[in-house]
């Protein structure tokens, strides 16, 4: 797989106080560290997305610590209560230290 790419789905607008559904997916192998290389017989080192964090206007809304039992291309769906317009920031952290992030704006009336 090429480099990891996040996908995020957030409604463009909502009414004040609405609880919205957010969906996220990042392309990633989630190498568990328990598989063996078919050719060499050696264990393939673990390389997973180990942390996922969602902030809204700088405050944490939701986060998750992930383990190798999460499927490849980790998918996450969750809720958020919106009371003002602003920006969601999504951050994924890889075992190798890479950090992937993306942002989405929402207009709240």
């Amino acid at each position: 797989m090429a480099k990891s790419k996040p996908r995020v789905k957030v409604p463009k607008k909502a009414a004040k106080g609405d609880i919205i559904t957010i969906k996220t997916l990042i392309s990633h192998k989630m190498e568990s560290g328990r598989r063996k290389d078919k050719k060499t017989g050696e264990l393939i080192p673990r390389k997973i997305i180990n942390h996922f964090k969602v902030e809204f206007n700088g405050a944490e809304v939701f986060s998750a610590n992930l383990e190798p039992s999460v499927s490849a291309n980790p998918y996450m769906q969750f809720k958020a209560k919106v009371t003002e317009s602003g920006t969601f920031k999504f951050t994924w952290t890889d075992d190798d230290g890479s950090v992937y992030s993306t942002e989405k704006k929402i207009a709240v009336e």
């Binding site: 090429a2 790419k5 996908r7 789905k9 969906k23 997916l25 392309s27 291309n73 998918y75």
Partner: peptide, 12 residues
Amino acid sequence: DFDNPAFSAVDR
């Protein structure tokens, strides 16, 4: 199309 994990590839 969001739940379908093939769409990362479609974006690419």
